[in-house]
Computed example of a mutant assay.
Amino acid sequence: MNFDELDQKMRVYETSADTCVLPDIYMVARLDGRGFTRLTKEVCAFERPFDAQFRDLMVRTAKALMTCGFRIVYAFTESDEISLLFDRQEQLFGRKLRKLNSVLAGEASAQFSLQLRQVATFDCRISQLPNRDRVIDYFRWRSADAARNALNAHCYWCLRKEGRDARQATQQLSGLTFGQKNELLFQRGINFNDLPAWQKQGIAVYWEGYDKQSVNPVTGEAAFAQRRRLATNFELPLKADYAEFVQRLVRD
């Protein structure tokens, strides 16, 4: 059996489970840090419940993913996760889920590890969304998750700083309503509404156009060229206003 015959025979086992995303379906990749609780609390000892240095690491990782060869329209990051909206017509790797998941997880892990100078890994999964409304719902979902996580995290660490251990703090918060958790913070001098928006609503990274000044090579006169750059938004709007914000970025 020559190499070509062997290659054809064995490659079937490697590609038999390949699934491709259908044309015109929106794709959103969600990357999550693996073992980040230990990484952030024990290995690196970031400030709790939120740390600006960790936030900036996640933002830089998101930006790296938007410029690593994929056509990414929008990135949203909160806590230890990053969501990426692909251009609807993205065709890289033939839209094979296996390739998209593995490459993005590898890129995120490498970028974050290089910046942190510690080994860090991400997993990746892709949501296949049929229309613009479901894309908006997806990012509303992640925004709501950011708010819920922020409230829980601030309550939990308030209790921990008062001397409760992990089990006691978790038990005390179990079953409390949103309003009761807000009151728990308020009684300790913290107004949840006044906390930084990036902690409660996450952070957005997206492309924006701008005019770059240049010189006309023929006439020597000043001219402007249209360019694009990544913008970062740490003050995202809430609820319906956030849905409108995402809708403006989603392309048909």
Rank of each mutant, 00 (worst) to 15 (best):
R60I: 00
L159E: 06
R140L: 11
T232M: 05
L92C: 07
S16L: 10
N191L: 09
Q168W: 05
L100W: 09
R229P: 01
W141F: 15
Q8Y: 13
C68A: 12
D56L: 05
E208H: 08
F36R: 15
A144T: 08
L176W: 12
R125Q: 09
V135P: 01
R248N: 06
E78L: 08
D252T: 01
T77S: 10
F112A: 01
G106F: 07
S102I: 05
Q53N: 11
P196W: 11
A108S: 05
A108V: 10
K181Y: 09
C44W: 06
G106Y: 09
D4T: 14
K161V: 03
Q226N: 14
Y138F: 12
A45C: 04
G175Y: 14
N149Q: 02
R34K: 15
L185R: 12
F192Y: 12
Q8H: 12
F50N: 12
D133E: 14
S214Y: 13
C158A: 03
R140C: 05
L236D: 00
E221A: 07
L97H: 06
Q115A: 08
Y138N: 07
R34E: 10
A110C: 11
W141H: 14
E47K: 14
Q226I: 02
F245A: 00
A105K: 11
P196A: 09
T37V: 04
L249P: 00
E81Q: 05
S143V: 00
P23F: 03
Q213P: 01
Q118M: 13
F54C: 06
F122Y: 15
H154S: 01
C44M: 15
Y206P: 00
L230A: 06
L176C: 05
V250H: 14
Q213K: 11
V135N: 02
R125K: 10
T170E: 13
A45T: 05
K161T: 07
Q172S: 13
W198T: 03
T15V: 15
D145L: 10
V135T: 04
L173F: 11
Y156M: 02
R142I: 11
S174W: 15
T61W: 09
K239Q: 15
L100S: 09
F178N: 10
E208G: 04
L184D: 02
F224V: 00
Y13P: 00
C68K: 14
K41E: 06
D194K: 02
D18L: 02
E78I: 04
E162T: 13
L249N: 03
K41W: 02
V59H: 14
L97V: 01
Q8E: 12
N2R: 04
S83Q: 03
G220R: 00
E162M: 14
V250M: 12
N149I: 01
D211W: 15
D241T: 03
T177R: 08
Q247S: 06
D56I: 00
R11C: 07
R55H: 03
T37N: 15
F76G: 02
E208D: 05
N182T: 03
V215I: 14
F192S: 14
L159W: 12
R132K: 09
